[in-house]
Design a protein around this nucleic acid. Structure first.
Lengths: 144, 144
DNA sequence: TCGCAACCATTAACATGTTAAGGAATGGCA
DNA sequence: TGCCATTCCTTAACATGTTAATGGTTGCGA
């Protein structure tokens, strides 16, 4: 089977980068007014959705590596948006929870975030949007 | 129209991140042996494909921001894989070209890179793979 | 219980992403 | 010609991505 390198234009990694760029642009625009980065917002959203989590679980659900989460948590703690407490039974664990201030920030921006998300779904159409999520999931090694 | 925030599991940005993670894993594994990062490899590939380019065009084709490219070019120059010359007619421009050493590095790794790319196409199937590239392109603001 | 492997989180070091500011060069226009 | 907005690239500053090493803790088997 002959195998030649595909042209960079049809490369899957580059297509993923560019799609992400397009998707993130309006989201970053929204977040700029809150002073949060995209990753900080993701951490808060996961905490709002799941309640208190240990660092490892939180990192997995937010698709972050632990070293990144360590730094992000320090920042969010400084902003008073999360709390962090050492585990009682297992003192290796760090439990992280959203504060009421953090929750208010989520609540205040959820409507616009939802509008943006709905906008992408509408742009592709329901069927194509779901197809896209399915295909992307098949590339995710953590989801098989 | 009511709009609630989708659960993080069904979020398009997170799906894109995770897919990218899955796609990049084998590529990074290959690149680790060459001492190149994924972005450095992308720059070399674009140069091999298009020949000498000015910095702006190169950044666009490699999906990099100019500040990133400036740093990457400095690194690649240090490794002797590219050359950089100031424009003659327009001295604002910096023209970047791949060296023979850089070309040899591309040639040496192209077969394995092609195998990896073919592997993803085979994993999804030709039809779904092309569908995916089309859907991703529709999210890219720079393409239509 | 002693010793050690495994685990959780952090720190470190380097590279890139992102935004803003700076510096050099060009082109157009009064 | 002289001014000035624009363009191209670089630098700066901060945040994250990535890999490796470190520091505490825990669990378990000899």
């Amino acid at each position: 089977m002959t195998q030649s390198l595909p042209p960079t234009d049809r490369s899957l990694p580059i297509a993923l980068i560019r799609a992400r760029e397009g998707v993130m642009a309006p989201i970053r625009e929204m977040l700029a007014e809150t002073g949060l980065t995209e990753q900080q917002w993701r951490v808060l959203r996961v905490l709002a959705e799941h309640g208190q989590l240990d660092a490892k679980s939180l990192a997995e659900r937010a698709s972050l590596l632990l070293p990144s989460l360590t730094r992000i948590a320090a920042t969010l703690r400084g902003k008073g948006l999360i709390t962090q407490t050492q585990g009682d039974a297992d003192r290796r664990r760090q439990f992280i929870a959203i504060t009421s201030k953090g929750q208010r920030l989520i609540d205040a921006n959820a409507p616009q975030a939802a509008r943006i998300a709905a906008g992408f779904r509408a742009a592709l159409g329901d069927a194509d949007f779901d197809t896209l999520l399915d295909l992307l999931a098949r590339l995710d090694p953590g989801a098989p």
